[in-house]
Amino acid sequence: MFHAHNVIIQFEDENSQICTSFTVQPGDICAIVGPSGVGKSTLLSAIAGFETPHSGTLTWDGQDLVSLAVWERPLACLFQSDNIFTHLSVRRNLALGVPRELSNKECVLAIQEVAENLGIGAFLDRPASDLSGGQQQRVGLARALLTNKPLLLLDEPFSALDTETRETAIALLKRITKDYDLAVIIIAHDEADVTALDASLVRLYREPIS
């Protein structure tokens, strides 16, 4: 279970801050909403470890996250774009996510399974640069799943997709959340997406620094 308690992130240039507390259970999706520029991405960066919150606690199953390095946190990320390395094949991209303790054989099997599950099994040996935007996001998602981390952070992953692809992607996300029993935190821009995802809501707003 992910828990954010009284997390405060300050924007000193603008003399304002955001403050939030919320909980996400495995198998649930939590959507962070708010006006643009409010600090949604900054909050997500803080959870991932790219930034440090001013105060408050972030825990996973009671374990403190703030003191952990990025790669030690039990989470995977998917951003709007640039989630894959375009000079590599799809398979090599996925292999980067496989935990190092797995043997070669297990690695091949795991990649095959996730790729089939996400509908990119046919592209495994194509250069990632050949794929469409929607397909590239799926590769990113597949690699996130392969890392075997229980918490998934998504920063507007659908914003670059057209309507049709977006609907498929939302359905896919809902399915894998259940299949893999993930706790998902997603930044959503579009309220319709939130409704479609059946997500719980965390609304962010700025307040003056007290």
Partner: peptide
Amino acid sequence: PQGQYRHAALLRFSAGAYFRHIEWP
């Protein structure tokens, strides 16, 4: 792109992996 550096951190790239997957390309 920033995303590439972030993924590299999340995936715990070694210096060699950085070179192969980000710096050299």
